[in-house]
């Protein structure tokens, strides 16, 4: 059995039929081939699958595709192309805040949401905000540094 599904993904309207049990992450990856959304645990603890659902970060592995009906979904691909992440991406690159890259889309989405909601988080707050994002490669410090530098640069930019 499949159900019709209408939603907006990265600004484009999508009409598909899906099985009710299909997760949003599987739908994005397998059907729309937006493979930048990753799967690391499929139980909401690793953060590899984060996407924005109507502007808020959600775990693509926990949300069913049908639950996103009528909503606006933004994935790493859409956010990257829109330029919304440009300064974070630059800081991650300069600071080498990724190795294998598998956690990176989720890290960027967490960082993006943190910076939208908290004006000037300190290192401790950045670490706390990342507490739902598992990275096995970096040891986290470079990621914290990259986010901290982006905050500084945005503050300078705003002041300038």
């Amino acid at each position: 059995m499949t159900l019709p599904l209408h939603l907006t993904v990265n600004g484009q309207s999508v009409a598909e039929h899906v099985e009710p049990r299909t997760s949003l992450a599987d739908f994005l990856r397998d059907r729309l081939r937006l493979t930048g959304t990753h799967l690391g645990c499929e139980m909401g603890v690793c953060g590899a699958c984060l996407v924005l659902l109507d502007g808020k970060p959600v775990h693509g592995c926990l949300v069913l595709a049908v639950q996103a009906a009528g909503s606006e979904v933004q994935t790493i691909e859409g956010l990257a192309e829109s330029g919304a992440l440009a300064d974070l991406q630059r800081a991650f690159h300069e600071r080498n805040a990724l190795q294998c890259g598998y956690c990176t889309p989720g890290m960027l989405i967490t960082a993006h949401s943190l910076l939208e909601t908290t004006p000037a988080p300190d290192r401790g707050e950045i670490r706390t905000a990342l507490s739902g994002n598992f990275c096995r490669c970096t040891g986290y410090e470079s990621i914290v540094d990259a986010i901290a530098v982006t905050i500084e640069r945005r503050a300078e930019g705003a002041g300038a």
Partner: peptide, 21 residues
């Protein structure tokens, strides 16, 4: 030197076996 191949990952354009169809 910075890693060029990191730029793909930062744009969600990694190409892992688990992505392959």
């Amino acid at each position: 030197h910075l890693r060029h191949n990191a730029l793909r990952h930062l744009a969600g354009r990694g190409a892992y076996v688990s992505d392959l169809q």
